[in-house]
Design a protein around this nucleic acid. Structure first.
Lengths: 229, 229
DNA sequence: TAGCTTAATATGTCTATACATATTAGCCTG
DNA sequence: CAGGCTAATATGTATAGACATATTAAGCTA
């Protein structure tokens, strides 16, 4: 076992799992036993094992002990960026223009996702984000006006995308990626041909006070979402 | 403060950040001070704060203290599934057929990603995965023969996708998503028209003994990758 | 004043001990 | 033998105290 601290214990346990000393499904010795073997306190072993459970390598249950995961799940962490950051990280200048800003009865797919009654009036914002002056992302957002302060913020100055993460208590939500053919509107705004493959990200977000927003991001061709694991 | 334990402390700190009691960029009181305020041990506060740092809500530095993140990053965790699991989770029958299995000099984009010399001979496997008999994913995989046992496994019996996660010590890698127009080959195999938008996932994986595999997954239309956060 | 050394400080981690909690295995009853 | 109670057990969490480590601020020298 090289090094010191809980990370070296995690490494050693991981090594034994990988060389199939402890094969998938096997029961790993208890924390007490490992603590004695490695000559550390149980809390230190606990820290290492909790980390492995977090990574999906082992599964832990009280009384039942710790088992090597049957089908080791590989987990990747995605940092959902604010679009401005995303663009600037590429060394490009970020800009945006608000194409639409109206109060509209939301269509059913939107109200359904947000758990609101049908045709609830929501603020519809259409924003085109630019990277180095070129169309980058078309952001179509439905925003629950109930979560906005009075008076509402000026989304022409700070994009809704950015205003939300810094001003609203976002609690939970989900994000989905897909590939879709460009609609006439998307094609016109993004400057591509109708039917061109677009990378689509759809997010639903909830806050303390209920549903906050549903947004659909249509990315210009070539967009990639990358994660390390 | 409701509840007990380190999670209630995390919740209370999060609450104060959200109501801008501690605005973005602000310095949060030290662990010692919070421990006194909440009437718990410093280790308990430490657990809560470490978790918040993990979630991207705060940034911690020794001696400098803990600050509220300027632009709170939202993180989502993606569980990368084995294709069979993915299909069966939808209640469909999984099948697959191997369309190609040859040793070929790998093209430059592949060797570059894997960090191998140009034109290294790699095992090229083309597998079509079926869900309920319908084309689901076209898997084009370049596999480093050096990591395979002798004799090599029979990928006609257990898909390479599944064999790898259960038999090779996968260490690290990355995954990228994009949208691309279907090539002639993809269109023919997946039963779509040329140019149809396809959801593409590309993964590079490394193991203890070096580069393992590069795989490109071309998903049939309608595929979504979903994550909660 | 620039550059180096040193001290102060907040987080990171470890230890030993204790109690809480979930889950299982065994026992006991009807 | 089915159903339910009980005890055993492994993990989950908390505590107080200690030392390690990174980083900043202050002080000291050339």
């Amino acid at each position: 076992m090289s090094g010191e601290g809980w990370e070296s214990i995690r490494a050693e346990v991981l090594r034994r799992i990988r060389i199939r000393d402890w094969p998938p499904g096997a029961l790993i010795p208890g924390e007490e036993a490992l603590a004695v073997e490695f000559g550390v306190a149980r809390a230190t072993v606990n820290r290492a094992m909790r980390d492995l459970a977090d990574a999906g390598v082992v599964e832990r249950k009280k009384r039942a002990g710790t088992r090597v995961a049957e089908l080791p799940v590989r987990r990747a962490r995605l940092d959902i960026p604010v679009i401005r950051q995303d663009v600037e990280a590429k060394g490009l200048a970020h800009g945006f223009e608000v194409l639409a800003d109206r109060l509209l009865p939301a269509p059913v797919p939107v109200t359904a996702r947000l758990g609101l009654p049908e045709a609830t009036p929501l603020r519809y914002l259409e924003t085109l984000h630019l990277a180095a002056g070129q169309p980058y992302v078309l952001e179509c957002r439905w925003l629950n006006p109930a979560v906005l302060p009075d008076p509402p913020p000026d989304f022409a100055a700070l994009s809704a995308n950015e205003w939300l993460v810094t001003h609203i208590s976002l609690l939970s939500g989900d994000i989905a990626f897909s590939a879709e053919a460009a609609t006439a509107r998307e094609a016109a705004v993004l400057g591509v041909t109708v039917g061109a493959p677009l990378f689509i990200a759809e997010r639903t977000t909830f806050g303390l006070a209920g549903p906050v927003t549903f947004v659909r991001l249509s990315h210009a061709p070539g967009h990639r979402v990358q994660m390390a694991f």
